[in-house]
Simulated scan of single mutants.
Amino acid sequence: MVNFNGKLLQDNVDFLNANNRAVQYGDGLFETIRVVHGKVFFWEEHYFRLMSSMRILRMEIPMDFTMEFLESSILDTIESSGLTERPAKAKLLVFRKPGGLYRPAQNEIDYVITVGGLESPFYTLSEEAYEVELFKDYYLNADMLSNLKTTNKILNVVASVFAKENGYHNCLLLNAKKQVVETTNGNLFLVKGKTIKTPPLSDGCLNGIVRKELLAILESLEGMEVMVDSISPFELQKADELFVTNTVSGIIPITKYRKKTFGAQTSKNLIGKLNARARLG
Rank of each mutant, 00 (worst) to 15 (best):
E44I: 04
L274V: 07
G100P: 01
G167V: 01
T66W: 11
T245E: 04
K164I: 02
P199I: 00
D64V: 03
G6P: 11
V226T: 06
L16Q: 10
L75T: 06
Q106S: 14
N156W: 00
N275W: 03
N12S: 11
P233Q: 01
V210W: 12
L242A: 04
N107T: 09
K260M: 02
G272W: 05
R21V: 10
K256W: 08
N141E: 15
L215Y: 00
L50P: 00
M59R: 05
G186D: 12
T32Y: 15
L50V: 07
D76L: 14
L172D: 00
L242H: 00
T84G: 10
C171R: 07
N275L: 09
M67A: 15
N3C: 14
M59E: 05
G117R: 15
S53A: 12
E133P: 02
T84S: 15
L57F: 09
L70P: 06
L174K: 01
L214D: 02
F189C: 05
S146W: 08
L190D: 04
L148A: 08
L92T: 09
E241G: 01
L16H: 14
S80V: 01
A22N: 11
T245Y: 06
L215W: 00
N170V: 02
A176R: 15
F30N: 12
K192G: 04
S81M: 10
H46I: 07
Q179W: 13
L118C: 10
A22D: 12
Y168F: 05
K256H: 07
S160N: 08
T151K: 13
A129T: 02
T247R: 01
H37C: 06
T255G: 02
K197D: 03
R103F: 13
E213W: 08
D76A: 12
I251Q: 10
F30K: 13
T247E: 07
F95N: 11
S120L: 14
T245Q: 08
M59Y: 08
K164H: 07
E219A: 04
I113K: 14
S230M: 00
M67E: 15
F15E: 09
S80K: 15
G223W: 13
A90K: 12
P199E: 02
L83D: 04
N246E: 08
S72D: 13
A278Q: 14
N12E: 11
F135P: 00
P98L: 07
F30L: 13
E225T: 10
C171I: 00
N12T: 12
G186Q: 05
S202P: 07
L214N: 03
L270V: 08
D240K: 02
I231L: 13
E235H: 03
N3G: 09
N152F: 11
L134I: 03
N141Q: 15
A129I: 00
I251C: 08
